[in-house]
Design a protein around this nucleic acid. Structure first.
Lengths: 250, 250
DNA sequence: AAGTGGTCTAGACCACCAT
DNA sequence: TGGTGGTCTAGACCACTTA
């Protein structure tokens, strides 16, 4: 097993474990292994791919580091899911200045079908004019409104999404993407700026017009770095703040 | 070589490679290997610690993942330094909204000795009233002032730091900490909020009073998570933004 | 007890860099 | 050419979970 391996796609002197990682990402993207399920045991996968267990483990290491797979000793290796906790501690970075992290309450304010503008299209990797969904949510923490979210979703990826699915759900939004459309958000890119509250945002958040708000522009990406959501959040940081830890292990 | 290893400190069923990592961190903290230098070759270290090369590599893997060591194939493994590039691409997260990342020009505005207040002391892990240094810098990007930085440094860690060392340096501030005081910043914790410009900040940044500014409160940590700097930045995000990528490899 | 992931070994060989 | 890190093997044994 010393040759460069002769698999499906193009090959440019890629290490075997990277090639394995790619094949496993494909299996995930194509739904062979679904979120929450266990993938086959390491020894079994090593046999299936014809590699040693060490090499197979190295491929899995990469996917675990990318938070795509989760290992549990004695139980198995599982495809990561978007349960409340994972979402809260991983993608949701707004916390009270004093006191512990809280779950947001989400209220749907608007749901519309529209055409993508130029900036939206570029962010989502679609063509200007393509069909999109626009959603506005109001997020409250400890009972008080703190965040206004404006989402833009490419309709092509969310074919039969209805207002009802968004309203009154017990779970998180990324959970909805996953369960109803098989879309797993695994990475985000966020850009932050300070802005002044316009009349609309001020009314929703209960602040004065011209109050400072933290504006977050997030692009959410799935397995192969394809954009699936554009989200612009405006956050009242009077009693909350955004955290970013740089250089951490996890 | 199957026993749990019988090394210096206390032992609680820690994997061998974690124990190796700890010993290497100690060697780094005590200056046995200095920033920019190569550490001994893997085969040599494996012999020194009496472990197999695979286990030794796993320990190094952890330190590489934490950005403490840097591997270079064919050359060696080096202790990370704070050169301009590393700093710019790793800890400095303010970029133009349009166009490529830029190096900031730093101008020293103030340098004072003072006593730590309660909040400062807590952030830095020192006692209230301990001696600190307060430094104010103005950072410009492409010639225009964009950021006001207020630093608080515990005097105990920076014994003979003078205003001169801060003013007119060609290199970065973390580079100064490293070269003159042997302090390597390897992690930061940042908290962001939106605020309004006060008269002072407005004058420095050339914006109107009441303009929105992004406020960043950063605590910088060294090898063993000890705080070495508190920094409050106020950023004019009219033409710049702060980026945070969540779930990335590096 | 059977099955899973976690650790560790003792090599071989390759790719890259300096001289 | 000799030294470095990078990849890969083919196991053994341990720790943990589940039944």
């Amino acid at each position: 097993m010393t040759e460069t391996s002769t698999l499906t796609g193009v090959q440019l002197a890629m290490p075997l474990y990277k090639e394995l990682e790619r094949r496993m990402r494909d299996a995930l993207a194509q739904g062979e292994w679904k979120p929450g399920e266990a993938i086959p045991a390491e020894r079994r996968l090593a046999a299936r791919f014809g590699v040693s267990i060490g090499t197979l483990r190295k491929a899995i290491d990469e996917l675990v580091a990318a938070n795509i797979l989760i290992r549990q000793q004695g139980r198995g290796t599982f495809v990561a899911t978007h349960d409340r906790d994972r979402l809260l501690f991983y993608f949701f970075h707004v916390v009270p200045v004093h006191g512990p992290k809280q779950y947001p309450d989400v209220r749907l304010l608007a749901f519309q079908r529209a055409r993508a503008g130029r900036a939206e299209a570029e962010a989502l990797g679609i063509a200007a004019g393509d069909a999109v969904l626009r959603v506005r949510n109001l997020l409250s923490l400890a009972g008080a409104p703190v965040i206004v979210d404006d989402l833009t979703l490419p309709s092509a990826r969310f074919p039969a999404l209805t207002e009802k699915q968004f309203a009154g759900r017990p779970s998180t939004i990324y959970n909805l993407y996953q369960d109803s459309f098989g879309i797993s958000v695994i990475r985000t890119r966020e850009r932050l700026r300070a802005v002044l509250a316009d009349a609309e945002a001020a009314a929703l958040l209960g602040v004065a017009r011209g109050a400072p708000l933290l504006s977050i522009r997030r692009v959410a990406l799935t397995y192969n770095d394809e954009a699936v959501e554009l989200r612009i959040s405006r956050v009242n940081t009077a009693a909350h703040e955004y955290y970013a830890d740089i250089g951490q292990a996890g």
